[in-house]
Design a protein around this nucleic acid. Structure first.
Length: 152
DNA sequence: GCCAACGTTGGC
DNA sequence: GCCAACGTTGGC
């Protein structure tokens, strides 16, 4: 069954426009086990993801992507020059994985964090229960509500 | 830039 | 395995 996710990104480093331009990207550099477990164990090709802009002028959900491929190794953990280098990771035993995310659509308008907070139907979102996590599950109804807001 | 809330590290 | 100290996230 198709699932829905939300992934956070700082648009200064990678925005929905970058994804649109690239068509798809390897979602690397997540160094949090909880987020890793979701990406490794639960994401499936075909799942849809909300693209969330954090630390942005307009904080909120900026568009939709889809999971193209899962379980790819995150090689930046092996790169000593990378900011995300993990000395515990080796080529044979790299704990970090990355999904490949493809572009689907950019919202006509960003669904802001404020809008989400003010919508009672969205108050149960994982986003609010687990602060600071960069990958969240989204329910089908949450997905539909936010998609409609964004495409208005 | 502040700071709350969490995650991670490392000494014991 | 506990927990204090430190680091990170991310809204404001």
């Amino acid at each position: 069954m198709k699932k829905y996710w939300l992934i956070k990104s700082e648009p200064d480093s990678y925005s929905i426009d970058d994804l649109k331009k690239d068509k798809s990207t390897l979602w690397e550099n997540i160094r949090n086990y909880r987020a890793r477990n979701i990406m490794r164990d639960e994401m499936q090709p075909g799942d849809l993801v909300f693209f969330y802009h954090s630390m942005a002028k307009l904080t909120g959900i900026a568009g939709i992507g889809k999971v193209v491929q899962v379980g790819l190794p995150d090689d930046s953990a092996l790169d000593k020059k990378s900011e995300y280098y993990d000395p515990k990771a080796t080529k044979d035993k790299n704990p970090w994985v990355a999904p490949k995310i493809g572009f689907v659509s950019k919202f006509k308008q960003v669904v802001t964090l404020e809008q989400i907070k003010n919508n009672k139907k969205l108050s149960g979102m994982s986003l609010f229960r687990v602060p600071r996590l960069s990958v969240h599950p989204i329910t089908k109804s949450e997905f539909e509500i936010i998609k409609n807001l964004g495409e208005k």
